[in-house]
Amino acid sequence: MLDINGGELVLLLLVAVLVIGPERLPKYAEQLGQWARRARSFVQETKTRVDDELGDDLKDVDWAALDPRRYDPRRIVREALLDDLPTGSGASAKSRASAAPLAAAGTSWRASTPAPEPAPGAPAPFDDEAT
């Protein structure tokens, strides 16, 4: 947490003994211990209070999975592109067979189907939500 190795710790203790003095050092060490105990109890009470206020709904959450350091957009895209094809959506065996090479190549098989050709003389289709 503090990344202090043994040599640095010994040097810090030596400086503390020289600056504070051997007469007052036990008093300051005791005071530091009390602060550490108070801080530990404060953190524990805070954790308990947060758990009580959030309830049982969030006790089962895997917080490690939500860690942003584990976020890998390449993995997420790869998993989304290589998902299993839907079987009950009316897709024919031919479309599933033609989609397999696309999924293996890493491209999306979910390309939109072209709109049917309008009848001759009919107005062009208009999408009012697209404009």
Rank of each mutant, 00 (worst) to 15 (best):
F126C: 01
L102E: 07
R96A: 02
N5Q: 08
D52N: 11
N5M: 00
A39C: 05
E129T: 07
R75Q: 14
S108T: 09
R40E: 03
A93E: 14
S41Y: 10
G88R: 08
D128R: 11
A122Q: 15
G90S: 03
E8L: 00
A97D: 01
S108V: 02
D127A: 06
D52G: 12
R24W: 02
V77S: 09
L81I: 15
G33Q: 13
I4F: 11
Q31F: 09
L14D: 12
T87P: 01
E8Y: 01
P101I: 06
R24D: 04
L81M: 14
E30V: 13
G106L: 02
A65F: 03
T46G: 06
W109C: 02
P86E: 10
E53C: 07
W35F: 08
A29H: 03
R40L: 01
F126E: 04
K27D: 02
P123M: 00
L54N: 06
A111S: 14
E45G: 13
P68G: 05
S92G: 08
L54R: 14
D127V: 00
P73A: 05
E23I: 10
W35E: 09
L66M: 09
G90C: 02
P114Y: 12
D52L: 13
A122I: 02
P123Y: 00
S92W: 03
T113A: 14
V19R: 12
F126W: 05
K27N: 03
R38W: 04
V50H: 07
V15I: 15
T107C: 03
R74W: 03
A104W: 00
G21K: 07
F126M: 01
A39P: 00
